[in-house]
Design a protein around this nucleic acid. Sequence first.
DNA 1: GCTAATCTAATCAGACACGGTCTGATTAGCCCATTAGC
Length: 189
Amino acid sequence: MNQRRSRTKFTEDQLKILIKAFDQNPYPGYATKQRLALEVNTDESRIQIWFQNRRARHQCQKKSEPDEDLESGQDQDHSEEEIPSREDRRCRTSYSSSQLHILIEAFTNNPYPGIDTREQLAKEIGLPESRVQIWFQNRRSRFHVQRKREPDDQDSEQRQDQDQALWDEGVQDPTNRPTGCLCTSLDSG
DNA sequence: GCTAATCTAATCAGACACGGTCTGATTAGCCCATTAGC
């Protein structure tokens, strides 16, 4: 349960393509990511993750090698003016009430679904697994925020304590994510 | 050990209804996010 997706192993050729694209623009838009996905024969979401990780490593390297770029004259293209392309985002996914019903029910059962569960849900609602993953990320995030803002009434305090215990257990031990009922008024919509 | 996968938190931005809220998409992570497979 809660298993991870199996690791993607990029070939040398695939990496060449990705690295070249990264050097040109470390913040590719959706269209570019889709094109790259086709080119290296993988999913667009894997391309997104690869760029995320690459940027993180790149930042680390830049910190550990200060001013080297200036001397070598390399990597001048990764300067501050390169901001993510806001015009080239993926179009917003709009969920139907039945799709939301399925997702909310799944979230209530387990806010940290593994890859199998996510893929099953994706199949069920007819959307890519990556959208399910993002939906759960946003849902968890807003659940945390909402809980911090909850009114101070007694009942909700008690319920919060119970939920908090369940949630914290899972958060502290990633192998034991909470599966208890995490009721939330986020469902109001 | 390297790096793909995953996480939280913050932020941007579209949709709906007409100013603000909700929520999907994207990003950073800072003594340099953490976890875990190969």
